[in-house]
Amino acid sequence: MVENFNIIILVLLVVTAVISLQVKDLLSASMIFGIYSFLICLLWAEMGAVDVAFTEAAVGAGVSAVFLIATVFNTKRKSSD
């Protein structure tokens, strides 16, 4: 019953999750985490959870990315792992 659309997004989700944890530049990591949030919001919209998707688009892809970036600017941009 799972549509191909879901499978594509789920694979992309796994890829972005791994990249955002692996990349050494924290600014990139925050941005890729924003992409991850947006992808998962697409998935939820597709599943019929429009309210959740809306919240995730505003909160996950928007505000929490800003919070992460604000902290990265005020601390260090490079990470050892």
């Binding site: 990591a29 998962i40 929490s64």
Partner: peptide, 30 residues
């Protein structure tokens, strides 16, 4: 496993969104 605190928090967020994905999945009707 990650030693950077920000990385830990990104991991934590991914962990939480995965749980949300689980909940949303269980409410889906085809």
């Amino acid at each position: 496993a990650k030693r950077n605190l920000i990385k830990k928090l990104i991991g934590l967020s991914i962990f939480q969104t995965a749980i949300i994905l689980f909940y949303v999945s269980l409410g889906v009707k085809a």
